[in-house]
Nucleic acid binder design. Structure first.
Lengths: 162, 162
DNA sequence: TTTGAAAAATAATGACC
DNA sequence: GGTCATTATTTTTCAAA
Protein backbone atom coordinates (compact mmCIF):
# COMPACT_ATOMS: atom_id res chain seq x y z
CA UNK A 1 0.00 0.00 0.00
CA UNK A 2 1.32 3.42 -0.93
CA UNK A 3 1.82 5.91 1.84
CA UNK A 4 -1.16 8.13 1.29
CA UNK A 5 -0.67 9.85 4.57
CA UNK A 6 -3.56 8.02 6.15
CA UNK A 7 -1.66 5.12 7.62
CA UNK A 8 1.27 5.00 9.95
CA UNK A 9 0.73 8.60 10.85
CA UNK A 10 2.97 9.38 13.80
CA UNK A 11 1.60 11.92 16.25
CA UNK A 12 3.80 14.84 17.17
CA UNK A 13 3.55 17.06 20.21
CA UNK A 14 1.04 19.40 18.60
CA UNK A 15 -1.22 16.54 17.61
CA UNK A 16 -1.13 15.18 21.12
CA UNK A 17 -2.03 18.48 22.70
CA UNK A 18 -4.94 18.87 20.31
CA UNK A 19 -6.21 15.37 21.00
CA UNK A 20 -5.90 15.91 24.71
CA UNK A 21 -7.99 19.05 24.60
CA UNK A 22 -10.59 17.60 22.27
CA UNK A 23 -10.99 14.51 24.40
CA UNK A 24 -11.40 16.67 27.49
CA UNK A 25 -13.87 18.99 25.78
CA UNK A 26 -15.20 17.98 22.40
CA UNK A 27 -17.01 21.26 21.91
CA UNK A 28 -14.13 23.57 22.72
CA UNK A 29 -13.86 26.46 20.26
CA UNK A 30 -11.00 26.46 17.79
CA UNK A 31 -9.89 29.71 19.36
CA UNK A 32 -9.58 28.25 22.84
CA UNK A 33 -8.08 25.06 21.48
CA UNK A 34 -5.39 26.94 19.59
CA UNK A 35 -4.56 28.95 22.67
CA UNK A 36 -4.33 25.93 24.93
CA UNK A 37 -2.24 24.04 22.41
CA UNK A 38 -0.01 27.06 21.81
CA UNK A 39 -0.60 27.17 18.09
CA UNK A 40 -2.30 29.53 15.66
CA UNK A 41 -5.92 29.13 14.70
CA UNK A 42 -4.99 28.42 11.11
CA UNK A 43 -2.66 25.72 12.28
CA UNK A 44 -5.32 24.23 14.49
CA UNK A 45 -7.68 23.92 11.53
CA UNK A 46 -5.03 22.20 9.47
CA UNK A 47 -4.09 19.75 12.18
CA UNK A 48 -7.62 18.80 13.12
CA UNK A 49 -8.49 18.17 9.52
CA UNK A 50 -5.40 16.06 9.10
CA UNK A 51 -6.17 14.05 12.22
CA UNK A 52 -9.67 13.41 10.94
CA UNK A 53 -8.49 12.45 7.48
CA UNK A 54 -5.99 10.06 9.04
CA UNK A 55 -8.80 8.43 10.98
CA UNK A 56 -7.23 9.24 14.32
CA UNK A 57 -10.11 11.48 15.28
CA UNK A 58 -13.13 9.43 14.31
CA UNK A 59 -15.70 11.99 15.31
CA UNK A 60 -17.22 13.85 18.21
CA UNK A 61 -19.91 12.76 20.58
CA UNK A 62 -21.78 13.58 23.76
CA UNK A 63 -20.95 11.51 26.81
CA UNK A 64 -24.25 10.25 28.18
CA UNK A 65 -24.82 8.87 31.67
CA UNK A 66 -26.30 5.46 30.96
CA UNK A 67 -27.96 5.29 34.30
CA UNK A 68 -29.50 8.74 34.26
CA UNK A 69 -30.60 8.27 30.69
CA UNK A 70 -32.62 5.23 31.62
CA UNK A 71 -30.22 2.34 31.12
CA UNK A 72 -29.78 1.27 34.70
CA UNK A 73 -28.81 -2.36 34.17
CA UNK A 74 -25.50 -3.26 32.57
CA UNK A 75 -23.70 -6.56 32.15
CA UNK A 76 -20.92 -8.32 30.34
CA UNK A 77 -22.08 -11.34 28.42
CA UNK A 78 -19.52 -13.86 27.22
CA UNK A 79 -20.55 -15.80 24.14
CA UNK A 80 -19.11 -19.12 23.16
CA UNK A 81 -19.51 -19.36 19.41
CA UNK A 82 -18.99 -21.75 16.50
CA UNK A 83 -15.63 -21.39 14.83
CA UNK A 84 -16.87 -19.83 11.60
CA UNK A 85 -19.62 -17.65 12.98
CA UNK A 86 -17.77 -14.54 14.12
CA UNK A 87 -18.49 -12.49 11.03
CA UNK A 88 -22.19 -13.11 11.07
CA UNK A 89 -22.47 -12.57 14.80
CA UNK A 90 -20.50 -9.37 14.54
CA UNK A 91 -22.85 -8.01 11.90
CA UNK A 92 -25.86 -8.77 14.04
CA UNK A 93 -24.38 -7.33 17.22
CA UNK A 94 -23.74 -4.06 15.42
CA UNK A 95 -27.46 -3.50 15.07
CA UNK A 96 -28.79 -5.18 18.20
CA UNK A 97 -30.39 -2.61 20.51
CA UNK A 98 -28.78 -2.21 23.94
CA UNK A 99 -25.47 -3.63 22.74
CA UNK A 100 -22.83 -1.10 23.73
CA UNK A 101 -19.59 -2.75 22.70
CA UNK A 102 -18.28 -6.20 21.82
CA UNK A 103 -14.94 -7.90 21.26
CA UNK A 104 -13.53 -11.03 19.72
CA UNK A 105 -11.20 -12.51 22.30
CA UNK A 106 -8.41 -15.00 22.52
CA UNK A 107 -8.56 -17.48 25.35
CA UNK A 108 -11.34 -19.35 27.02
CA UNK A 109 -14.22 -17.20 25.82
CA UNK A 110 -14.89 -16.18 22.28
CA UNK A 111 -16.88 -12.99 22.36
CA UNK A 112 -17.43 -10.51 25.16
CA UNK A 113 -20.43 -8.23 24.84
CA UNK A 114 -21.16 -5.18 26.97
CA UNK A 115 -24.89 -4.63 27.13
CA UNK A 116 -26.93 -1.91 28.79
CA UNK A 117 -30.67 -2.25 29.32
CA UNK A 118 -33.32 -0.24 31.17
CA UNK A 119 -33.63 -2.80 33.96
CA UNK A 120 -32.84 -6.38 34.90
CA UNK A 121 -35.93 -7.62 33.11
CA UNK A 122 -34.77 -5.99 29.91
CA UNK A 123 -31.33 -7.42 30.45
CA UNK A 124 -32.71 -10.88 30.97
CA UNK A 125 -34.82 -10.63 27.84
CA UNK A 126 -31.87 -9.36 25.83
CA UNK A 127 -29.64 -12.21 26.90
CA UNK A 128 -32.16 -15.03 26.75
CA UNK A 129 -34.09 -13.96 23.68
CA UNK A 130 -31.63 -12.07 21.52
CA UNK A 131 -28.06 -13.08 22.31
CA UNK A 132 -28.67 -16.77 22.87
CA UNK A 133 -30.75 -16.80 19.71
CA UNK A 134 -27.98 -15.50 17.46
CA UNK A 135 -26.90 -17.97 14.83
CA UNK A 136 -23.63 -19.57 15.87
CA UNK A 137 -23.92 -18.87 19.61
CA UNK A 138 -23.41 -22.03 21.63
CA UNK A 139 -23.68 -20.73 25.17
CA UNK A 140 -23.60 -17.53 27.19
CA UNK A 141 -22.34 -16.46 30.59
CA UNK A 142 -23.53 -13.22 32.17
CA UNK A 143 -21.82 -11.03 34.77
CA UNK A 144 -23.84 -8.15 36.12
CA UNK A 145 -22.01 -4.87 36.51
CA UNK A 146 -22.43 -3.46 39.99
CA UNK A 147 -20.27 -0.41 39.57
CA UNK A 148 -18.01 0.97 36.89
CA UNK A 149 -15.69 3.82 36.06
CA UNK A 150 -13.24 5.01 33.47
CA UNK A 151 -9.50 5.16 33.57
CA UNK A 152 -7.49 8.36 33.44
CA UNK A 153 -8.01 9.08 29.76
CA UNK A 154 -5.15 9.82 27.41
CA UNK A 155 -2.43 10.37 29.98
CA UNK A 156 -0.12 8.26 27.81
CA UNK A 157 -0.23 11.09 25.32
CA UNK A 158 2.19 13.12 27.42
CA UNK A 159 4.63 10.29 27.82
CA UNK A 160 5.64 9.89 24.22
CA UNK A 161 8.47 11.61 22.43
CA UNK A 162 8.76 12.97 18.92
CA UNK B 1 -33.87 13.70 49.17
CA UNK B 2 -35.85 16.65 47.87
CA UNK B 3 -36.67 16.72 44.20
CA UNK B 4 -34.18 19.26 43.00
CA UNK B 5 -34.82 18.38 39.40
CA UNK B 6 -31.53 16.58 39.10
CA UNK B 7 -32.69 13.10 39.90
CA UNK B 8 -35.35 10.93 38.36
CA UNK B 9 -35.48 13.19 35.37
CA UNK B 10 -37.64 11.52 32.75
CA UNK B 11 -36.64 12.16 29.17
CA UNK B 12 -39.32 13.37 26.80
CA UNK B 13 -39.32 13.22 23.02
CA UNK B 14 -37.43 16.48 22.64
CA UNK B 15 -34.70 15.37 25.04
CA UNK B 16 -34.29 12.15 23.14
CA UNK B 17 -33.97 13.85 19.80
CA UNK B 18 -31.35 16.20 21.21
CA UNK B 19 -29.36 13.37 22.74
CA UNK B 20 -29.53 11.40 19.54
CA UNK B 21 -28.11 14.27 17.52
CA UNK B 22 -25.43 15.14 20.05
CA UNK B 23 -24.29 11.55 20.28
CA UNK B 24 -24.11 11.35 16.51
CA UNK B 25 -22.28 14.66 16.22
CA UNK B 26 -21.01 16.26 19.38
CA UNK B 27 -19.93 19.41 17.59
CA UNK B 28 -23.15 20.07 15.72
CA UNK B 29 -24.17 23.72 15.89
CA UNK B 30 -27.12 24.67 18.04
CA UNK B 31 -28.76 25.97 14.89
CA UNK B 32 -28.56 22.64 13.09
CA UNK B 33 -29.48 20.76 16.23
CA UNK B 34 -32.60 22.85 16.77
CA UNK B 35 -33.65 22.31 13.17
CA UNK B 36 -33.14 18.57 13.30
CA UNK B 37 -34.97 18.31 16.61
CA UNK B 38 -37.79 20.54 15.40
CA UNK B 39 -37.41 23.06 18.17
CA UNK B 40 -36.36 26.68 18.44
CA UNK B 41 -32.78 27.61 19.15
CA UNK B 42 -33.71 29.19 22.45
CA UNK B 43 -35.44 25.99 23.40
CA UNK B 44 -32.43 23.95 22.40
CA UNK B 45 -30.22 25.99 24.72
CA UNK B 46 -32.62 25.49 27.59
CA UNK B 47 -32.88 21.74 27.06
CA UNK B 48 -29.18 21.14 26.66
CA UNK B 49 -28.45 23.07 29.82
CA UNK B 50 -31.09 21.12 31.68
CA UNK B 51 -29.73 17.81 30.42
CA UNK B 52 -26.27 18.81 31.57
CA UNK B 53 -27.46 19.98 34.97
CA UNK B 54 -29.32 16.72 35.41
CA UNK B 55 -26.13 14.83 34.70
CA UNK B 56 -27.60 13.06 31.70
CA UNK B 57 -25.17 14.74 29.34
CA UNK B 58 -21.87 14.38 31.16
CA UNK B 59 -19.81 16.22 28.60
CA UNK B 60 -18.49 16.13 25.07
CA UNK B 61 -15.48 14.37 23.70
CA UNK B 62 -13.59 13.39 20.58
CA UNK B 63 -13.78 9.77 19.55
CA UNK B 64 -10.21 8.62 19.03
CA UNK B 65 -9.13 5.53 17.13
CA UNK B 66 -7.06 3.67 19.71
CA UNK B 67 -5.15 1.79 17.08
CA UNK B 68 -4.34 4.74 14.87
CA UNK B 69 -3.42 6.84 17.88
CA UNK B 70 -0.79 4.34 18.89
CA UNK B 71 -2.61 1.99 21.25
CA UNK B 72 -2.57 -1.14 19.14
CA UNK B 73 -2.82 -3.76 21.89
CA UNK B 74 -6.00 -4.11 23.93
CA UNK B 75 -7.13 -6.70 26.42
CA UNK B 76 -9.62 -7.47 29.11
CA UNK B 77 -8.03 -8.33 32.42
CA UNK B 78 -10.10 -10.00 35.10
CA UNK B 79 -8.93 -9.34 38.63
CA UNK B 80 -9.75 -11.56 41.55
CA UNK B 81 -9.59 -9.33 44.61
CA UNK B 82 -9.83 -9.43 48.39
CA UNK B 83 -13.31 -8.79 49.72
CA UNK B 84 -12.63 -5.38 51.17
CA UNK B 85 -10.27 -4.03 48.56
CA UNK B 86 -12.61 -2.73 45.85
CA UNK B 87 -12.56 0.88 46.95
CA UNK B 88 -8.82 1.13 47.04
CA UNK B 89 -8.36 -0.73 43.78
CA UNK B 90 -10.95 1.47 42.13
CA UNK B 91 -9.11 4.61 43.17
CA UNK B 92 -5.89 3.31 41.76
CA UNK B 93 -7.39 2.13 38.49
CA UNK B 94 -8.80 5.61 37.92
CA UNK B 95 -5.30 6.99 37.57
CA UNK B 96 -3.43 4.03 36.09
CA UNK B 97 -2.22 4.85 32.59
CA UNK B 98 -3.63 2.72 29.77
CA UNK B 99 -6.66 1.72 31.82
CA UNK B 100 -9.67 2.50 29.66
CA UNK B 101 -12.58 1.24 31.73
CA UNK B 102 -13.23 -1.11 34.64
CA UNK B 103 -16.19 -2.69 36.37
CA UNK B 104 -17.06 -4.39 39.62
CA UNK B 105 -18.85 -7.58 38.67
CA UNK B 106 -21.08 -10.16 40.24
CA UNK B 107 -20.22 -13.78 39.57
CA UNK B 108 -17.00 -15.68 39.24
CA UNK B 109 -14.71 -12.71 38.61
CA UNK B 110 -14.54 -9.60 40.70
CA UNK B 111 -13.20 -6.83 38.53
CA UNK B 112 -12.97 -6.60 34.77
CA UNK B 113 -10.51 -4.07 33.38
CA UNK B 114 -10.25 -2.94 29.78
CA UNK B 115 -6.70 -1.87 29.04
CA UNK B 116 -5.14 -0.44 25.90
CA UNK B 117 -1.38 -0.28 25.46
CA UNK B 118 0.94 0.61 22.59
CA UNK B 119 1.95 -3.00 21.99
CA UNK B 120 1.97 -6.45 23.51
CA UNK B 121 5.11 -5.67 25.46
CA UNK B 122 3.42 -2.67 27.04
CA UNK B 123 0.39 -4.77 27.75
CA UNK B 124 2.46 -7.44 29.38
CA UNK B 125 4.25 -4.89 31.51
CA UNK B 126 0.98 -3.27 32.51
CA UNK B 127 -0.56 -6.55 33.61
CA UNK B 128 2.45 -8.08 35.27
CA UNK B 129 3.91 -4.98 36.89
CA UNK B 130 0.97 -2.70 37.57
CA UNK B 131 -2.26 -4.65 37.84
CA UNK B 132 -0.89 -7.68 39.65
CA UNK B 133 0.91 -5.33 41.99
CA UNK B 134 -2.22 -3.50 43.13
CA UNK B 135 -2.96 -3.95 46.78
CA UNK B 136 -5.75 -6.46 47.19
CA UNK B 137 -5.35 -8.19 43.83
CA UNK B 138 -5.07 -11.94 44.24
CA UNK B 139 -4.82 -13.09 40.65
CA UNK B 140 -5.40 -11.94 37.10
CA UNK B 141 -6.58 -13.50 33.88
CA UNK B 142 -5.97 -11.79 30.56
CA UNK B 143 -7.89 -12.07 27.28
CA UNK B 144 -6.40 -10.35 24.29
CA UNK B 145 -8.82 -8.46 22.08
CA UNK B 146 -8.44 -9.48 18.46
CA UNK B 147 -11.19 -7.34 17.05
CA UNK B 148 -13.87 -5.09 18.45
CA UNK B 149 -16.76 -2.88 17.49
CA UNK B 150 -19.58 -0.85 18.94
CA UNK B 151 -23.26 -1.56 19.03
CA UNK B 152 -25.87 0.56 17.29
CA UNK B 153 -25.76 3.49 19.68
CA UNK B 154 -28.87 4.95 21.27
CA UNK B 155 -31.47 3.22 19.12
CA UNK B 156 -33.45 2.54 22.28
CA UNK B 157 -34.06 6.24 22.46
CA UNK B 158 -36.68 6.03 19.73
CA UNK B 159 -38.48 3.14 21.32
CA UNK B 160 -39.64 4.84 24.46
CA UNK B 161 -42.89 6.67 25.04
CA UNK B 162 -43.67 9.79 27.00
C1' DT C 1 3.57 28.19 10.45
C1' DT C 2 2.13 32.62 11.92
C1' DT C 3 -0.51 36.81 11.74
C1' DG C 4 -4.12 40.06 10.51
C1' DA C 5 -8.15 41.20 8.19
C1' DA C 6 -12.80 40.59 6.87
C1' DA C 7 -17.23 38.26 5.71
C1' DA C 8 -20.34 34.85 7.15
C1' DA C 9 -22.22 32.07 10.56
C1' DT C 10 -23.26 31.04 15.19
C1' DA C 11 -23.85 31.78 20.18
C1' DA C 12 -26.19 33.60 23.80
C1' DT C 13 -29.50 36.59 25.91
C1' DG C 14 -33.61 39.04 26.61
C1' DA C 15 -38.27 40.76 25.42
C1' DC C 16 -42.58 39.19 24.28
C1' DC C 17 -46.15 35.74 22.66
C1' DG D 1 -42.46 26.24 25.05
C1' DG D 2 -41.91 29.23 20.86
C1' DT D 3 -40.52 33.46 18.02
C1' DC D 4 -38.00 37.46 17.10
C1' DA D 5 -34.47 40.75 17.54
C1' DT D 6 -29.95 42.08 18.98
C1' DT D 7 -25.22 42.01 20.23
C1' DA D 8 -21.08 39.55 21.10
C1' DT D 9 -18.11 35.82 19.48
C1' DT D 10 -16.50 32.49 16.64
C1' DT D 11 -15.73 30.28 12.39
C1' DT D 12 -13.63 30.07 8.16
C1' DT D 13 -11.07 31.67 4.40
C1' DC D 14 -7.47 34.29 2.35
C1' DA D 15 -3.52 37.10 1.62
C1' DA D 16 1.00 38.30 3.21
C1' DA D 17 5.13 37.51 5.47
Amino acid sequence: MADDGLDNYVLDTVDRRIIKELVADGRVSIRALATKANISRAHAYVRIERLQNAGIIEGFTARISHERAGLGASAFVALSIRQDSWRGISEQLRTLPFVDHFSLLGGAFDVLVLVRAPDNAGLRNLVLERLQGLDGVRSTTTWLIFEEANGPGPTWIDEQTT
